[in-house]
Each structure stands twice: as structure tokens, then as C-alpha cells.
Nucleic acid binder design. Structure first.
Lengths: 188, 188
DNA sequence: CGCCGAGTTGAACTGAATCAAGAAACGTGG
DNA sequence: CCACGTTTCTTGATTCAGTTCAACTCGGCG
């Protein structure tokens, strides 16, 4: 819970009362490794802050599933597409490790947006950052080949390589596990 | 200018005074076809609303330049990466047609965020949408092959195909003009 | 101990890039 | 309004990065 406060205070100062107003809506939740946090077809009810653990984003239907994101400790996580539009999610969130989350419901988050001075500011800032991350990834996918994307990932998000099975890493950079294996041999 | 008001009012109600406060900061600017709006290496000073015309986003350095976005009438346009971080831009914006913009400076936009009730709400909403668009594109690039991406574009953003030279469309979906030409022949 | 999923390696295949050349469209000046 | 040069688009032939299919190794876990 303290980590959420730190997250917010890195963006803007919080008065004690503001923090209390925000904090009241978050609930703790534990999830076991490999459990699914948000199912495909369900509408995302919660925005979650990761106290502990790693979350994988993936689209399950396509013959072989497609992994396209990971989130780590001290970050928010959420099937944003579904959460923001409140329509069923096209993808799933899965616990890659045992996880501890702090969750706030869609409705309670709206209260923070409506009733606090800083809610929309925090929200704007957060989505600016998320947008910039996706922009970087867009360029990475368009501009670089498989080897370059792998080296890029190594530089930009080494925590992924340290903590995630290679088959998911491969999918994340848009190649097969075999191709990733060959790239890694070539490098080391 | 009226279009900016419509843009905002589709998101939230505006009181007359709020609109006046916002409107005072926007300045009109005309740009000729093929001119560069924001140069690589420059820090983006303005957030611009397009009254008329089409803007192309591209990275010029790579041997053959990489086109990765287009913006159209009644949308905001901006080298967001540079604007948000206020560091030099890695890419350029170019006028694909004669263009009329309404521009607000970085500093003046901060005034709107700080001094109006609705600024951060409008900002949050706008970046939520931008983020969702990039998310869709990420999936498109990872999940589909060239032909599927082209057909996807046809469905999702037909205005691009109607108004943009094919060599830029090719780059946008991550293939060469030759490959796009073959895909198009195959379809029609 | 034996099983199962993750990772590796090899061989054949394929979608898209590259190289090269011609056709069509576009714009600019006479 | 036409002529010319330039750019865009198309088409063909070849190459190549990455996929697919298949077999094998390794490490963890019941």
C-alpha cells in the first residue's frame, strides 16, 4: 500500500486527506502462480497495483497464443482496453509468479477522478507514460529485425529477460522460440 | 476553432468561461504541402489541432525513412514524445497536404492543466484514447501478416488509403512498396 | 525413477526484402 | 496545353530472415 503512495508522490504532492481518500478504495488480493487474473471475454473490473510478482498479458485464442506485455512490481496492471471501455476483454492477464495486488474497482476510481483535485492529474500522467511506452514499442517492431529487437529488449527491459520464460519473450518480440534460441546462441 | 470546442464537448461539458480560458491560448497557423511541421532534433513546442489537412509522422534517418503514423482533420497532432518530455524529437511531422492548424504552446497548456477544472480530465481522456489506439496497432503488428495488416487498415482507417501515397502506407504497415503492390493486385 | 514442458538444433520451406527495370502519374515551365 | 523530368507504382527474378516440422537434450517435479 505504501508503494502506491510512493507511486503517486513521484508524480505530485499528496495531502494526508487526499491520500486517505484514495487509499480507502484499495483492497488487497493474493493470486497464485499461473492463475488467470482477468479472463478473455470478461469485462475488467479492477485497476490493480502490483505489490509483488509478475503479470503476463496474452491473447489465448490464436492457434499459438500471443504474449504482448509484462508488468512488474510497483506498477499498475489492468486489461486497460476492457477497463477503459467497459466491454469484454480480448486478452487475458496471468500470474507468472505468486502475486500480491491492491485493487480498486472501476466505480471507485471514477470517484477519485470526480472528487479529488489530483485524480485526473495522476490519471493523465499515467496514461501519458503508458502511451509513450507503446510508442517506443511500435518503433521497435517496425524498425528493427528480430536480433535487434532482442538486443533492444536486453537494454530497455532486462527485468523481462531475467524473470520470464524464453517462449514468452520470443512471442513478445514477435518471433518463434526456435528463432530466439538461434539469436541467443549467435550472441553469447 | 469551433472544432476544438466540439472536440472538448464530446468529452465533457464546458462552461462558457472555461472555453474562453482555453481558447485564448490557441493560435492559427497555415502550412504548405510537403513542409515540415516539426523537425527531428527540435523540441516540440506546440500541441496542434488540425482544422484542415493531413500530417505524416516519420523517422528520417534510417536509410529509407520509416512512416509510422498519420493524423487527420479534427484531431490533435504533435510529436508527443518530444512534447511530453521536452527533449529533442526523434521523428518529424510533415504536411501531406496544405494544412491549417490551431496551436497551443507547452507552457500555455500547463496553465490549462493547472488553472481549470477540466484540463486534466480532457488530458486524461485524450491520452487514454491515444494509448488504446497504439495498443490496437501493437496487436496488429504482432498478430497479423502483411496481407492481413493491409485488410485491417482498410477496415479500421480507410481514410489513410484514400488520402496517402501507397509508399507511405506500405511503410506504415511495415512492408516495402513492392510487397504492398503485390498484395493489392492479389486482392482486386 | 520416469514424465513433461522448455529449450535447442537441424533441414526444408515460405513470405517478404532486395535488386533491377519498365509503366504510369504528377508537376513544372515553356 | 503540351513536353519533359521526376517520382510513384508495378512486375519479375533472386535472396534471405524467420517459420515450420521434427527430433533430441535438459531440468524440475510428481
Amino acid at each position: 500500500m505504501g508503494h502506491i503512495r510512493e507511486y503517486c508522490e513521484r508524480i505530485t504532492e499528496l495531502k494526508e486527506k487526499e491520500w486517505e481518500f484514495i487509499a480507502q478504495y484499495f483492497n488487497r488480493k493474493e493470486i497464485n502462480k499461473n492463475q488467470i487474473i482477468t479472463k478473455q471475454g470478461e469485462t475488467e473490473k479492477f485497476l490493480s497495483f502490483i505489490e509483488k510478482g509478475i503479470v503476463r498479458f496474452y491473447i489465448p485464442d490464436s492457434e499459438s497464443e500471443l504474449t504482448f506485455n509484462f508488468t512488474f512490481e510497483k506498477e499498475f496492471t489492468c486489461a486497460y482496453d476492457s477497463f477503459l471501455t467497459q466491454i469484454p476483454s480480448k486478452y487475458e492477464l496471468q500470474a507468472l509468479t505468486d502475486i500480491v495486488l491492491w485493487q480498486i474497482s472501476y466505480e471507485d476510481l471514477q470517484k477519485i477522478y470526480e472528487q479529488t483535485r489530483i485524480g485526473n492529474y495522476l490519471g493523465r500522467f499515467t496514461f501519458e507514460k503508458l502511451f509513450l511506452n507503446k510508442s517506443k514499442r511500435e518503433i521497435s517492431l517496425l524498425k528493427y529485425n528480430a536480433k535487434e529487437r532482442y538486443l533492444n529488449l536486453f537494454k530497455e527491459r532486462p527485468e523481462i529477460l531475467k524473470n520470464v520464460p524464453l517462449k514468452y519473450v520470443a512471442s513478445y518480440i514477435g518471433i518463434t522460440p526456435q528463432a530466439l534460441s538461434r539469436i541467443r546462441r549467435q550472441i553469447s
